[in-house]
Nucleic acid binder design. Structure first.
Lengths: 337, 337
DNA sequence: CTGTTAGCGCATTCAG
DNA sequence: CTGAATGCGCTAACAG
């Protein structure tokens, strides 16, 4: 009734729909005067080309999907920030999907995106120990995929990671150098590529310093804060570790809380270092030593790779592997004496 | 060539396209056996209905837009979490737009969304002191709009806010009761509805306690951390306030940093309370007293209102006003003695 | 229960 | 430089 579309606008101006279309598409084949007439009339009448119609026609959505485990998380929200920056510059829209580490959700999101809804996907994965065939379908549909941070190693596609092995090695070494002998490694899900990689850095650093690896010091925590606290309480009482290497920020926080609760002093009784994107690590009590991934930069890199793939057409698959360097910042939580 | 669509699938199965469509739409008018035949063939051939085509046909996108100033921010990322939860349940997709507090961007995003790209919009606004006509166009296009946290009071639409006036009043009173006499109010943009409302709570609390209002204690900070730190350094030196009421989290953090740098003791020399969604406020040094908005809940409420509007059809505009209660938690940063 | 038909709004041939 | 005609992939009457 009162909704405007290309036809009505054309009728209004005594032009054809193709001319309207040309005016909007910045086509060269149009008189400058008519173009302006069209655009100003469009503005008056509040007309905007319908995205879905043009997407359908052009087989291109100008939209990308970002799939992450969670968004209320410093690392991911900063990474999304980076992705957004690049995407917006290119005039792309961003769909957000949260898996909450649920592999089934990941599959369902991906399956939903086959249908041409997006021109590309950036994902931090959730189901390491599973069959990843559903991802191969994307290739068939020529929808580019870029992994960041958490990746599937068996899928051959572009990846942006950080130098997790090296920084884990150094972080562990840092604890050892500061006097720790019984270092617990806290992890949420051992099967994640990230968790494995970081753990390897940990174990290799132990070996390099002639400290024997103890299986009981690998602590499998939970995504649930309270459960994790229970687990840690147990560990601190039973095993009395003198060092903690937290493979994700959330576990460092749980450690702080448990220590506060149990009157365990950091760093006197126990030293801690953690992967973390917390901007205020320095303001914690005590200030937290961190391994900080360049989250924003990783987002930017991932987006750049995705657009490279999108723009490369179908000619060649983009499978670049970008590794960003994390920064280790020693603070009070791991200080000796 | 190798791309599948409804027609090819139909031909493959010796059915008509409408039958295929019915199989996918869960229509009742279809034989169970054929439905299964269709679905399994679709699975084999990797067919998924094209969203853009069906959106075009149905004039419905199953997509909502979320426009926020930033995402690397605890409040907004938690709110988005809430929105996502509701939207996903309804099978909706979420487009994210970040304004970085740039009013021009806000306008441009909104103008871009007129074209039927989304069924509704949830927004936390950025341009209080401006003309908001561009939003009225949405009404004409029957695209529902829900504000949350930061709202335009001159736009008549659904809104989700928190009880900012009351909690600001109480927070200020809390500082006064703990001995503060010169309380500075830190704000980023005085013209924002939020900033104004919170400031009113502050001034009224002063008045209620016979403390005279001082214009120089209203500190207009910046979104840029370093600038803010400079401003605060100046203020702390010149005015020597004994209390700080930070209207947003970022300003409390800047305060901590400046105090650390300048050897100003919290809470001995200066007490501080802040609006904050930081989950680890208790772990800061010293633990930070906070006014915590129920970010997740606000997101959920906003999404619920939006879907109420979307489902109400054009019959009646939804203009519900939901006010969520914030929680004031006194910690060491504002303790007396 | 299934097929036929028409058209959602737009972009692009192809003529002129 | 502009217009007429066609179809992107799908859904929803309407028949049967």
């Amino acid at each position: 009734m009162d909704s405007i579309n290309i036809k009505k606008l054309a009728k209004e101006l005594n032009l054809s729909t193709s001319t309207i279309s040309r005016a909007f598409r910045g086509s060269s084949d149009i008189n400058k005067a008519t173009k302006e007439r069209v655009l100003s009339a469009a503005y008056e009448l509040n007309y905007e080309p319908n995205h879905y119609a043009s997407n359908l026609r052009e087989q291109k959505s100008n939209t990308i999907a970002v799939i992450v485990p969670e968004i209320a998380n410093n690392f991911f929200s900063q990474a999304i920030n980076g992705i957004e920056r690049v995407a917006r510059e290119k005039g792309y829209h961003i769909l957000i999907y949260l898996t909450y580490d649920d592999f089934e959700k990941e599959i369902s999101f991906i399956n939903n995106l086959h249908s041409g809804r997006v021109d590309g996907i950036i994902m931090s994965v959730s189901g390491e120990a599973n069959n990843h065939d559903y991802l191969n379908k994307l290739k068939k549909k020529k929808i580019p995929l870029v992994f960041f941070d958490r990746v599937y190693e068996d899928i051959d596609t572009a990846k942006v990671t950080s130098n997790d092995y090296e920084s884990s090695f150094s972080a562990t070494e840092h604890l050892i150098n500061n006097g720790c002998k019984n270092i617990a490694y806290l992890v949420v899900n051992k099967s994640h590529s990230i968790g494995k990689m970081r753990m390897r850095g940990y174990t290799d650093a132990l070996a390099a310093h002639q400290i024997s690896y103890r299986d009981d010091l690998i602590i499998d925590c939970s995504n649930d804060l309270e459960q994790t606290q229970e687990i840690l309480k147990q560990v601190f009482n039973d095993l009395k570790p003198d060092g903690i290497f937290a493979s994700v920020e959330r576990l460092a926080i749980a450690t702080y809380q448990v220590c506060q609760d149990q009157n365990i002093r950091i760093p006197e009784d126990i030293k801690i270092i953690s992967f973390s994107s917390l901007e205020i690590a320095a303001l914690l009590n005590p200030s937290l030593s961190t391994i900080t991934q360049p989250a924003l930069e990783m987002g930017i890199e991932a987006a750049k790779l995705l657009f490279k793939a999108i723009n490369s057409g179908d000619e060649q698959m983009v499978t670049d592997q970008v590794v960003c360097k994390s920064q280790i910042i020693g603070r009070k939580s791991s200080a000796s004496k």
